[in-house]
Design a protein around this nucleic acid. Sequence first.
DNA 1: GTTTCATTTCAGAAATTTCTGAAATCCTAG
DNA 2: CTAGGATTTCAGAAATTTCTGAAATGAAAC
Lengths: 199, 199
Amino acid sequence: MKLPPLHQEFVLHFGEMGSRWGINRTVGQIYALLFLSEEPLNADQIVDQLGFSRSNVSMGLKELQAWNLVRLRHKPDDRRDYFTTPEDLWEIVRTLVDQRKKREIDPTLSKLRELQLGGGDADPYAQARISELRQMIELLTGWYDDMNRLETERLVQLLSLGSRIQKVISATETVVPLGFGTRKKKSSDDGSNTAGGSK
Amino acid sequence: MKLPPLHQEFVLHFGEMGSRWGINRTVGQIYALLFLSEEPLNADQIVDQLGFSRSNVSMGLKELQAWNLVRLRHKPDDRRDYFTTPEDLWEIVRTLVDQRKKREIDPTLSKLRELQLGGGDADPYAQARISELRQMIELLTGWYDDMNRLETERLVQLLSLGSRIQKVISATETVVPLGFGTRKKKSSDDGSNTAGGSK
DNA sequence: GTTTCATTTCAGAAATTTCTGAAATCCTAG
DNA sequence: CTAGGATTTCAGAAATTTCTGAAATGAAAC
């Protein structure tokens, strides 16, 4: 691996972290390299810089495409594929979270719903526990879907506010007693066990 | 594995998902079993129900304790260790997110800061990219730390509001033109590259 | 102290995942 | 169609992770 020290450290770190992020070392390093590169890179350039086998790089790029984390580019008079990461970091983060949700959360949510439907009446405790878990995940993913629809600028605004948002809400509640802000409705649900047990 | 069908499916699912969640099958299954069990279980009971070796269960429980995901209990006249998961689901979610942040985010944030300090002046693009990434992570983790300080009830309130929070903010801004709600300050920062590029 | 259970450690076996080189496939240009 | 180059596939090798049984450690009861 022949890279400037900064790049080298960054790439190696992403390789190590890869395993914790559900991708492997190769994929992490390829992504890191692309992330730092202003110009799109082709597979052979990646091979040169990271020293993996050609086929391994090919696999890695394929996986990054499956994650939708890289963009394909082409140069005039050159039919090789060139790859980049999106310039906009928010686009990257959104993709990352979407993909992880799809892989790590959605299957479980489906399974929980399925279990609840097919469930007999045995073991009320386990059933309640599963129901509560499902409701919690629904609350969280519902909130996420909602946030995900916001424009980036609005999103940054909210994130910067942090918990100070509380003040805005309570201020609003006293000044303008609207219907939202207090825990209520959420249309219909089985209500078998409330996810928001205040403890 | 001798379990009621509901339990069995749930446990197997958590085992499969385990690998996507950065834990292994054994650990996932043990956790799932404890999650569904009203009564605390000891290691031998887990061995009986899941059919792993005694030592594997011991390792798994140790890992769950390292993640702080199980609680240790004792029964009178019985010196074996019994394990449960917290009754309060929010406590579980908070622990889970905390731990994943600690393992998956914090090391990278440290590394990015370190790279920025030690960085020479070569490759301005890569430097800017790293700085931008660091700022983005700081924004997100800062927001998270903030939210994490809220009581559960407040948290649920905010989550239920979802993006309708926008309305509250804009309403507040027009009615009571406060200082927050508009993007500003965040005390001091290097400002080398703004994380909130609107686009 | 000794006995008796419960738990942990650890080296190697088993299983899984990652990586490679060679061959196959797939363009596009001519 | 054929040639030339780029990319992908795939079977096996290499590396890593998980799992086990046996031995070691620990800790309460006597």
